[in-house]
């Protein structure tokens, strides 16, 4: 994969390390001279000292037709324009931007950035999800929060423990995609019975979230 990493410092460093290992074609471009030296020395790779918001700079860097373009600066607008330039003018296939302002997450997605990441936004989601359900291990939002994927642990005192999927009656509100039990992934059917210690991977919609969490929150009386 041809991957372009634009701006950023510690985030860029981490990603360079990650992607360099898997033998990808990595292009690193950064507008800040100190960052260029830092990244170049730490990772022993060339770093292009140019601003990623200009078409000719990205062309000179060899970014044309890249599979992935990641914009990591602290300026949401610059990240947006870099992504737009990469996609529209250089034929990059997929672009990712980090943003500082959580309100820009949905805005940039709407404007065509494929993935938009914001630490504060994700933090808010984590807090929100964990507040609603204490057996929640992890959660993931897709399609602008309309689809929720939840990872839950089943405990002995849960009402759902010992019930089959059929008995849980999730029809129309959720779909259990996978049950992870004793280091094995099981694709369940209606007859599968949930046991203490099971990790359940569940897909639901924003509208049904409350009903689903209510169901799994119930304890045996």
């Amino acid at each position: 994969m041809k991957i372009v990493i634009a701006d950023g410092l510690h985030e860029a460093d981490y990603l360079i390390n990650l992607f360099n290992r898997r033998g990808n074609n990595l292009i690193v471009i950064n507008r800040d001279e100190k960052a260029c030296h830092y990244l170049s020395e730490r990772n022993n790779i060339p770093v292009i000292h140019r601003s990623p918001v200009r078409e000719n700079n990205l062309l000179a860097a060899g970014a044309k037709g890249a599979d992935l373009f990641i914009a990591l600066s602290q300026n949401d607008i610059k990240n947006y324009v870099a992504c737009k330039t990469a996609k529209q003018l250089l034929g990059v296939k997929r672009c990712i931007a980090t943003v500082v302002n959580p309100k820009n997450v949905s805005l940039l997605k709407k404007l065509g950035v494929d993935a938009v990441l914001c630490a504060t936004y994700l933090l808010g989601e984590q807090i929100h999800s964990s507040a609603s359900l204490d057996s929640l291990i992890d959660s993931l939002s897709l399609e602008d929060d309309k689809i929720q994927i939840l990872e839950l642990r089943i405990k002995q005192d849960d009402e759902a423990c010992g019930k089959s999927l059929e008995q849980l009656n999730l029809s129309g509100i959720a779909s259990i995609s996978c049950v992870y039990r004793q280091d094995q992934g099981i694709i369940p059917n209606g007859k599968t019975v949930l046991q203490d210690g099971d990790k359940v991977l569940l897909v639901t919609t924003a509208e049904s979230m409350e009903r689903v969490t209510a169901l799994f929150r119930r304890k045996r009386s």
Binding site: I77, L107, L111
Partner: peptide
Amino acid sequence: DDTNVFLTDVCHFV
């Protein structure tokens, strides 16, 4: 310029 490009897209698409 970059702010202007961004604002153009917001005004146009949003």
